[in-house]
Design a protein around this nucleic acid. Structure first.
Length: 877
DNA sequence: GACAGGACTTGAGACTAGGGAG
DNA sequence: CTCCCTAGTCTCAAGTCCTGTC
């Protein structure tokens, strides 16, 4: 896409309004997780293993789902069009400045905006080298990567998926610090400013209410608070020091998972440069490696591409385009060469011969029958056992395997205890193994799996994500899933389609006598293999590369770039939907209100669901009963969202929104769709008219990241690393709350809390004693005897005072720990860190505040975010 | 434009290793 | 040295959104 000026300028007034405290709080109360809390009641401490000895997760059930079984109502179509057109027609001409900023800031801000407006990117200000594969991009249609162009391409230390093949180990030796070369702008003021308006996301306002954890009450009090202006701006940034990124030797340059392909690698041609291999193509190709025969071999590489590109070019003006192109200009082409070894299968079932009882009598079962019985037996202490649906589904499937005339006729008459107990014993045995034994087993496993763990993509060795085929088991759907308990049958090679480079040897089928279903050579996709989900045969299970791969990194980066771009459009978008709150056209009004909710509350889009899925909703699928109007202008949301996690939140909304919701509800049944003229397709089509590539989920990323960014800028103060880390965690928590990322309260939570309380009480007792002693000491008397009646040592008042001080400190520390623990008991921080927070914000913050990145990102995240490690310290989302 | 198929991201919970407290 | 807890890792379910076809 051609350079264009973002259209955020038109609406200064709106921005001002926007600054007003429309405050929303997520209220993760214990109740908000009610559905899970109940389920938690008798969680066994034991885990379960499936019949193959592979771990099988126990699933928490959600027994408390609101009984809202609306039959999905199909939404009649309506025109999604309208409101946006005027907006897109007016791309920014003037530059927005924040009226509240200082003049200096204004200038900077203008400058920045202008630079953006002329297509000069932030990245240009960063001497950061872009990863790039962008050089393949046809700039016209590539909104994200094209913006990056112009910067030194491929200048990165091998961070791109270049043909260079590197050695992982040696990379590992490279200290992290070397990845962050000291820059000349260290400690100097950065010209970079945050366009202040953009810094006012919903998220930031949300946190305005203070610590979320104070908001644990059922009824969140909505305290409108004006967000201070961007004090963080230049001053904060001006004295930035370049952090030495400590000694994170784990992080390698640019590309974590980039490893040298060793000569002695499995593939005999691994030592041959890819280019050469390609030449000798055919010969190497399916030369044999597979003794196995394959049903079909299909090649579909990048054919759709040209058509697509032409279309794209035509649409180069964003206002028209509704398409966003992936970064590589080969259109859809994701790779050129791809070599891997296929997938590994779980071991075959080993019968244990333990008999279940039927009406008190032991029953002989065939291995196949026993396997399924064992899957069931080991789930004895899970909540699934209380669920009718689970039992029925299991019985239906097991019965098919038993056969009609089997002695077992009723599930209720079966006693699986012997198998359950056997399983417990096995687990215990495993636990009792010595460290050496465990180690040996682990190594053996590693040895077997090693060849499947890696793929070579365009000459670069990359980690494969889920190379293990899922073992058979009983389906553990979440919430009230209609299919829970069904047998998830074993997957065989004949179920699996392999995708691999044309010139790569076809992976040998690991199970003798069997063969792959199909071999494809489709370089427009990133999967290495897939099979049909046995539970829902219309769906697929894919094998992808690991998150640390450059392919994943690239798309991750694009995701964040898109979200950042939203910043430039958000004001227009907000203005547009605000205007449409009162539109005469119901469809328009619904789109406006839905967009508002998605923006303000970070709701998910809400696709239609089939009857054979759990009954959960998102924005577009909200039912009338899910939203309650609370006068004068509050909305009370209560529904089950993704994973049947309950979303419960009461928020104050703009009056027109409140009224509109009331109108949408009028004349409908509780189970009817609130937005009956809307679905995700229409909503997204509309959003694309406002910004190329915009979809509902971008708002979540945007709000999450901008919240983190703002929080970190506002809240970070001088202090030690630990204090700064707390600031980060708090910011992270805000985001988790916005996104409603919950977790079940750990089993031992209350025990841990009472332990802490006990200790605090003990310390307080000590404190009391010390105070008495102090009084006495001051009067020259000896201390009283302790609880055991022993005489304490005679101390001088100063010493006692010192003791009092340390005891006080300990108490404070413990109370803080307790508070944090309580605070975070239902909040999951990880999800947002992995999926929603632009890692460059974190990296930049770490650099600015000299916090070692390892304090924030674990090894996996460091690998996943390798692409972000060069972020400029002044990076703003 | 509806629908189905397909590909990819997001998500919670189970499992596990290892570090610190007792 | 053992136990407990936590953080990290693994697993796979459940979302989103795109594309092609009719």
């Amino acid at each position: 896409m051609a350079v264009h000026a973002p259209g955020k300028q038109v609406l200064d007034n709106f921005d001002d309004d926007d600054d007003e405290p429309l405050v929303f709080k997520r209220n993760i109360s214990s109740a908000s997780k009610q559905n899970q809390v109940n389920a938690q009641v008798k969680k066994p401490s034991s885990s379960s293993n499936n019949a193959n000895g592979q771990s099988a997760n126990t699933q928490k059930g959600n027994t408390n789902a609101p009984s809202l079984r609306a039959s999905p109502v199909k939404s009649p179509m309506g025109s999604p069009r309208g409101s946006a057109s005027s907006l897109k027609a007016s791309p920014a001409k003037s530059l927005v400045t924040n009226p509240k900023s200082s003049g200096a800031l204004d200038n900077q801000s203008k400058q920045t905006s202008k630079q953006k407006a002329t297509g000069i990117l932030k990245e240009e200000m960063n001497p950061v080298k872009q990863e790039n594969n962008d050089d393949e991009d046809s700039e016209d249609n590539l909104p994200l990567s094209s913006r990056i162009k112009g910067t030194s391409i491929g200048g990165d230390k091998g961070s791109n998926a270049s043909t260079q093949v590197r050695d992982e180990d040696s990379d590992d030796e490279v200290p992290l610090s070397s990845r962050f070369p000291t820059k000349s702008n260290v400690g100097t003021s950065s010209s970079k400013t945050n366009d202040s308006i953009d810094r006012k996301p919903l998220g930031l306002k949300i946190q305005q209410n203070g610590s979320i954890m104070k908001n644990k009450q059922q009824k969140p009090s909505v305290v409108p608070t004006k967000r201070p202006m961007d004090k963080a701006n230049s001053s904060d940034q001006s004295s930035v020091k370049r952090t030495k990124f400590s000694d994170a030797s784990t992080v390698t340059k640019g590309k974590q998972a980039t490893v040298k392909v060793e000569d002695k690698a499995d593939d005999d041609d691994d030592h041959v440069p890819i280019s050469q291999r390609m030449k000798k193509s055919g010969s190497l190709d399916r030369k044999s490696s597979s003794v196995t025969k394959v049903t079909k071999i299909v090649s579909s590489s990048s054919k759709k591409i040209n058509k697509k590109n032409k279309k794209q070019m035509k649409n180069s003006k964003y206002s028209k385009s509704t398409k966003v192109q992936p970064s590589s200009s080969d259109g859809q082409k994701k790779w050129t060469t791809l070599v891997h070894n296929g997938v590994i299968f779980p071991p075959p079932y080993k019968p244990h011969g333990i008999k279940i009882l039927y009406k008190g009598q032991p029953v002989d079962l065939t291995p196949e029958q026993e396997e399924v019985a064992t899957m069931f037996a080991v789930m004895k202490d899970t909540d699934y056992m209380q669920k009718r649906q689970f039992l029925d589904n299991f019985w239906n499937d097991w019965r098919k395997i038993l056969g009609r005339n089997h002695v077992i006729q009723k599930l209720q008459d079966c006693d699986f205890t012997p198998v359950y107990e056997w399983h417990q014993r096995e687990k215990e045995k495993k636990k009792q193994m010595t460290t050496e034994e465990k180690k040996a087993i682990k190594e053996e496993k590693l040895k077997q799996e090693d060849k499947y763990m890696w793929a070579v993509v365009d000459g670069v060795k990359e980690k494969v994500g889920n190379f293990r085929v899922e073992p058979p088991g009983l389906f553990r759907g979440r919430g009230e899933h209609p299919k829970m308990g069904k047998l998830k049958r074993r997957i065989h090679p004949s179920d699996i389609t392999i995708n691999i480079g044309k010139d790569a040897p076809i992976p040998e089928c690991p199970i003798p006598g069997e063969s792959w279903k199909e071999i494809k050579h489709d370089n427009t996709v990133t999967w290495l293999a897939f099979w049909n989900d046995p539970i829902n045969p219309k769906e697929f299970k894919y094998v992808f590369l690991a998150p640390s791969s450059s392919l994943k990194g690239q798309s991750d980066k694009e995701k964040y770039e898109k979200a950042r771009k939203l910043k430039d459009y958000i004001h227009n978008i907000r203005a547009a939907y605000t205007k449409d709150f009162t539109s005469k056209d119901v469809t328009k009004r619904q789109i406006a209100v839905a967009t508002y909710l998605i923006d303000k509350l970070a709701l998910r889009a809400g696709n239609e669901k089939d009857d054979d899925e759990a009954d959960t909703v998102g924005c577009c699928t909200l039912k009338v009963a899910n939203v309650e109007c609370v006068p004068p202008n509050k909305l009370k949301f209560d529904f089950l969202g993704k994973d049947s996690i309950r979303y419960e939140n009461t928020v104050e909304v703009e009056v027109p929104v409140y009224k509109a919701i009331g109108q949408f509800q009028t004349g409908k049944k509780q189970t009817d769709d609130l937005f009956d003229k809307l679905d995700t397709t229409k909503l997204n089509a509309h959003l694309k008219e406002l910004m190329p590539g915009l979809t509902a989920k971008v708002f979540r990323t945007y709000n999450a990241s901008i919240t983190l960014d703002g929080q970190l800028y506002e809240e970070t103060e001088e202090g030690d690393v630990a204090e700064k880390v707390v600031v980060y965690q708090q910011a992270n928590k805000q985001v988790a709350i916005i996104c409603n990322h919950q977790r079940t309260i750990s089993k031992s939570h209350s025990a841990q809390m009472s332990k802490l309380t006990e200790k605090i009480e003990e310390l307080k007792g000590t404190l009391k004693e010390l105070k008495t002693d102090l009084d006495r000491a001051k009067k020259g008397k000896p201390p009283l005897k302790d609880a055991q009646g022993k005489q304490k040592r005679n101390l001088n008042p100063e010493a006692i005072e010192k003791k009092i001080a340390t005891t006080n400190q300990r108490i404070e520390k413990m109370e803080l720990a307790m508070k944090t623990k309580e605070d975070l008991k239902t909040v999951a921080l990880g999800t947002s860190k992995i999926n929603y927070l632009d890692p460059r914000i974190t990296v930049a913050w770490c650099k600015r505040h000299e916090v070692p990145i390892e304090k924030i990102f674990n090894k996996s995240l460091l690998a996943k975010f390798a692409w972000a490690m060069d972020a400029d310290p002044n990076f703003r989302f």
